[in-house]
Design a protein around this nucleic acid. Structure first.
Lengths: 209, 209
DNA sequence: TCAAAAAGAAGGATCGTTCGTTTTAGGTTC
DNA sequence: GAACCTAAAACGAACGATCCTTCTTTTTGA
C-alpha cells in the first residue's frame, strides 16, 4: 500500500495502539514482547516500526493517552453545574472512564482497569511519564477541591477539614475501585455510589477533630 | 560457610527477599533483571539459586508475603472492639501497613506502596497468585462487612445500602490512597482520615436511593 | 511506473539459568 | 587446642534462549 490516505495512516496507528494496549493490559508492559504485539495487531515488525520508533515510544504513547483520557473525565465531571454530591460525581467519572473505551474488551472484561494499574507502575520508572501524571493529577485535584469547597460553603459538609483532603479521598475512592475491578472483575458503579452514600449518612463524628 | 546455622540460612533468605523486593518496587518485576537483584543483595547467582529455584519463585514468594501482611493488617483492624468509625478503621490499617515494613525505605520514601501496586499487576498474569489475593480479599471483605453492619445496627449509618458496598468502598479508599502514595509520594494518614470525616459529615442525601 | 508501505529474516544485546570451581564453617582427630 | 577434613555454601564464567531492532527485499496503491 503505497501513497495511502492520511486516514489509512491514522487508522494503522490506532490499530497498533489498540492492539498493543490490549497486550499490555493482559501481561504488563515488560512481560509483553514486541512479537506478542506484532501477532496481536497482525503486522510485521517493519510496519510497526514505521509508526513508532520502538517499544518505549509505543508505551509512552499509550500511557500518555490513557492519562489524558482519565484527566479529561475527572475534569468534565467537576465542571458539572450545579456540582453534584460525591456519590454522583464519582459515579459519573467511573461511568465515563469505563464507557470511554467500551470497545476494548477481553474475556468479557473491560480492559481499561487493567491498563490503568499497569500505567501506574510505569510512571514509577519513567520521569517523563511521571511528570505527565503529576501535572494531570494536580489539575484534577484543583478542580475537585473547588467542588468540595462548594459543599462546605453551602453548609453541606463540615468546613473544619481541608478541602484538599476530601478531594484526595474522593479521588482515592475512584482509584481504589478501579484497582478492585482490575483484580476482581467488573462491578456495577452503583456499588461504589451506595458505599459513598452509606459513608455520607454517618453524620458529623462528634468532637473528634 | 558450610554447615551454617538455621538462623544464618533464614537471614540469607530474608536478605534476598528484601533486596529483591526493593528492586521490584523500584522497577517492577519484569523490568528488573536477576543481575539487578544479585547486585542489590551482593550475592552471586549460585547463592541466590540455592534459596530460590528461579525468578518466578522469588516473585511468588514476595507477592504472597506482601498479600499476607496486608490481609493481616486489614483483619486486625476489623477485630478492634468496639468497632471504630470508618476514619479510624482506615487510618489504623494504613498506619500499620506503612509501619510494618518501616525498615524498607528508598530515597526517603517507603517502598511498600510501590511494591503493592506492582503486586496488583502481577496477580493479573499468575493464576496461583490470583487465587491468593481473591481468597484474602474475600476474607477481609467479610470482616469489614460485619463492622459496617455494626454501624447500621447501631443507627450510625443508613441501613438501606448494602453493607458490602460500603465495605468495598472503604477498602477502595485505602487502596486508592496507597496508589497515590506510590505515585505522588508519602502523605500523612491524617489526609485520608480528614477526607473520610468530611464525607461522613454530609448527612443523609435526602430521597435519592 | 514508482514511491511508499509492509514484510520477515537476521544481528547484536541481554536475559535467566546452569554447573564446574573455590571458599568456608564447623566437626573430628591427635 | 591446633591442624585437618569435609560437606555445603558461594562464586562467576558461560550457555542457550529470547528480546528489540535493523535492513534488505517484496508488495501495493495511486
Amino acid at each position: 500500500m503505497a501513497r495511502v490516505t492520511q486516514e489509512h495512516l491514522d487508522a494503522r496507528r490506532r490499530q497498533i495502539l489498540d492492539g498493543a494496549a490490549l497486550c499490555f493490559a493482559r501481561n504488563g508492559f515488560h512481560a509483553t514482547s514486541m512479537q506478542d504485539v506484532l501477532k496481536e495487531v497482525d503486522l510485521s515488525a517493519g510496519a510497526v516500526y514505521r509508526y513508532f520508533s520502538g517499544k518505549d515510544e509505543l508505551i509512552s504513547a499509550i500511557v500518555t493517552e490513557v492519562l489524558g483520557e482519565i484527566r479529561e473525565h475527572f475534569e468534565a465531571a467537576a465542571r458539572q453545574s450545579p456540582p453534584p454530591p460525591p456519590d454522583e460525581l464519582v459515579g459519573r467519572v467511573m461511568g465515563s472512564v469505563l464507557g470511554g473505551r467500551s470497545g476494548m474488551v477481553h474475556n468479557g472484561e473491560s480492559v481499561f482497569p487493567r491498563l490503568i494499574i499497569q500505567v501506574w507502575t510505569e510512571v514509577l520508572r519513567n520521569e517523563e511519564l511521571s511528570a505527565v501524571i503529576h501535572e494531570g493529577y494536580s489539575s484534577v485535584r484543583g478542580a475537585w477541591v473547588k467542588v468540595v469547597q462548594g459543599y462546605q460553603d453551602a453548609g453541606m459538609m463540615r468546613d473544619d477539614v481541608p478541602a484538599e483532603s476530601v478531594a484526595r479521598t474522593m479521588i482515592a475512592t475512584a482509584q481504589g475501585f478501579v484497582a478492585q475491578m482490575a483484580i476482581f472483575g467488573a462491578a456495577p458503579v452503583e456499588v461504589l455510589q451506595e458505599g459513598l452514600r452509606g459513608l455520607m449518612s454517618m453524620g458529623n463524628p462528634d468532637t473528634r477533630t
